[in-house]
Design a protein around this nucleic acid. Sequence first.
DNA 1: AGGAGTTTGTGAACGTGAGAACAAACTGAG
DNA 2: CTCAGTTTGTTCTCACGTTCACAAACTCCT
Lengths: 254, 254
Amino acid sequence: MTSARSTRNGTPGEGVSRSASARAPERGIPEATIARLPVYLRALITLSERGIATCSSEELATAAGVNSAKLRKDLSYLGSYGTRGVGYDVEYLRYQIAREIGVTQDWPVVIVGIGNLGHALANYSGFSSRGFRIVALLDSDPARLGEKLGDMRIRGFDEIETLVEELDIAIGVIATPAVSAQDVCDRLVAAGVTSILNFAPTVLNVPAGVDVRKVDLSIELQILAYHEQRKALAFDGAVDIVEPPVDPRVVESA
Amino acid sequence: MTSARSTRNGTPGEGVSRSASARAPERGIPEATIARLPVYLRALITLSERGIATCSSEELATAAGVNSAKLRKDLSYLGSYGTRGVGYDVEYLRYQIAREIGVTQDWPVVIVGIGNLGHALANYSGFSSRGFRIVALLDSDPARLGEKLGDMRIRGFDEIETLVEELDIAIGVIATPAVSAQDVCDRLVAAGVTSILNFAPTVLNVPAGVDVRKVDLSIELQILAYHEQRKALAFDGAVDIVEPPVDPRVVESA
DNA sequence: AGGAGTTTGTGAACGTGAGAACAAACTGAG
DNA sequence: CTCAGTTTGTTCTCACGTTCACAAACTCCT
């Protein structure tokens, strides 16, 4: 949950009934593993930049912040890319994971909503260096229209359909205010986008076959606040006793 | 789990041995549930703003983007705040969830690293409206020092310790480049911060008792890319057959 | 008051994920 | 070639999370 827990769409029941045939290797990599592959990839890149050619599962696990058993199990879903008694070849494993994730190719990405966050995303170097190329910036505000950002011009919403189709964009990033997010989403999906990264604090409804992932800053903080509150309570020794819940209904109405 | 997967710290084995006593209510709310509470809270606020006074688990679940069974089970961990045959009182439930999360009080927050992303975070209105008040902005770049952002001045790293202590800050947001993240983290923790939201693309090492949550934009995109790639393959009918992995070692060395 | 209709709260079944532990497979020394 | 040492890949077990399904509890109508 993945805070940002995975929001794979499609009704769970009426799935594609993944071939009930007997002994198919059935390349079904668990969602939890997939979410960790990019972390391993980053760790490998770091090792690679330091000139390290080989590493054990223990070393890589430490660099990635997981335990080594989990790492080995995760990697085993991809194949047997290590050597017993030796470890993993950094470059080789890096390539295999990149290929599995699909970042050996370049994915064109559109960002919609160029406010504070949109600006930050457009300038973020981490995308381009990892298989993603931002090829279009869209905003509804006519005042921002035409503004240059790096080597790209901001375009209006009326160009959504043309741009997505012409540039063959499959991935869209929504950084608009919450109210416009669903509209933007609908238009992106209608135009052909099938993966959406949503920064707007709203639940997006999409048809089956479209993936949505949500990044919600205030939700992350709230989760931290919960634990923080518990720490404070534990410190006061008031762990089990909870103040009797005040009922606002009594005050307000009735 | 999310990108923003939870990274609760502390060794799993040597836990606090949660009282083996018999029938304690044992307020242990599952991590997965906690991650969803803020989503429910937001949905309730939306309903409240629309003037809706009561809702069923079905309605609330739809608004929150989950199924109703899960919603009811989640809420049942907090207590019995609904009425059978009727549903939930929106205001009442909203208050109960807010109290459980701990956002009825205001949490002071420090943001470290005021680059593109830091700017965006500092200006994000979603924090202040939901129980968080940004009380300090820090950056290492002397050129940015003193710059005003809203009604706040950007201060230097040398003030980390004084600010955290004087303002009693428990929650820190790290939006620095990856290289400085661990240093900043160490100083925040040493000064008394016990919850960290990390936007830097790096694994942070913290002592037990400190919570870290990670938001990594490029990882989210990579997860989408994986699914996108699979969709493309499925469309080509090449689902089960995978191209034989090319071994770069053969080309490069030996 | 009684009965039909709703909706919650929860026990039980099921599926997924994590971790421990170990056999298999490699290296290198003698 | 053999043996000791190392590290992977995998199996097994347990814990966690999700979903189903239903009894309990409420409302409203007659």
